[in-house]
Amino acid sequence: MSVLVYTENWDGKFKKLSLELVSYASSLAKMVGGSVTALSIGKVEQDELSALGAYGATNVLSVDDAPGGLDNQLYTSIITAAMEMTGSKVLVLAHNNTGKAIAPRLSVRLKAGLATGVTALPESVDPLVVPKKVFSGKAFAKVKILTDSAILTLAQNSFELTETGGSASIEAFDPGVDVAGVRTSIRDVQKQEGKLLLSDAEVVISGGRGMKSTDNWGPIEELAEVLGGATACSRPVSDEGWRPHEEHTGQTGKIIAPNLYMAFGISGAIQHLAGVSSSKCIVAVNTDKDAPIFEAADYGIVGDALKVLPELVTEIKAAKAQ
């Protein structure tokens, strides 16, 4: 039973996320006894494509003349054509904006059960049963796929990269779809140039109402820079307009799972914790010793974030310099 994985590219480059998907698909293919084909849509150099082989893809299908910008119906048709051509029964995508947009359409088109935000390999393959988070991280569910084919979207940062050292053969793929039917038209694109995406960051430095004012974000940004991380905030902060809504981390904002999450002046309302509780290590600094953030945190300091932050920046710089 072969596995197809859709590896999205960003300006012709794959990200760690793409490699996580191939690693996952490769482990999954071993369980079901098949091989992994990666599908790439858009212009990507051969070297970049063949690098997917190192994570377990044996074959890469490349559709390099697809129109720019995501049209959900067009992408659904392209991926459907690739599923049919390879005879794959399992499709793996990222649980990111693109995956969320097209996986449900593919589920209907392919009559394949869809499990979204999957966090680990299946616990059984016949029937296919996969774990995912529900109730915004308050519990896990085991989802049984009732159909012959399955579509899984994998939660970011939930699967370790596994290098298998293989090489992939690359094949140009013509999905035979008609672009004349595309009805969404892209008027403008604004990319976050040179800025690490919150969802990709291994380290996230976050501020809450305890930061008192938008003017106090300097040390948060500095700390993020020192650690090569991204900045985030709690909901009241983005509601106040102190920070852009893209930085809002929590139940209705971004759900993240970095290696290190540092929360300054965030009390840790249950809705905030829903967005960050998958972080591998949580550090909290808050003046209120009874704040719920300390129940979720691994390390805590009861104190004023505005005082602790500059000192922390200095100490971390010193530690990094050694």
Partner: peptide
């Protein structure tokens, strides 16, 4: 197409 088989805290 799918069934929530079991929940785990």
């Amino acid at each position: 197409l799918i069934h929530y088989q079991e929940y785990v805290m």
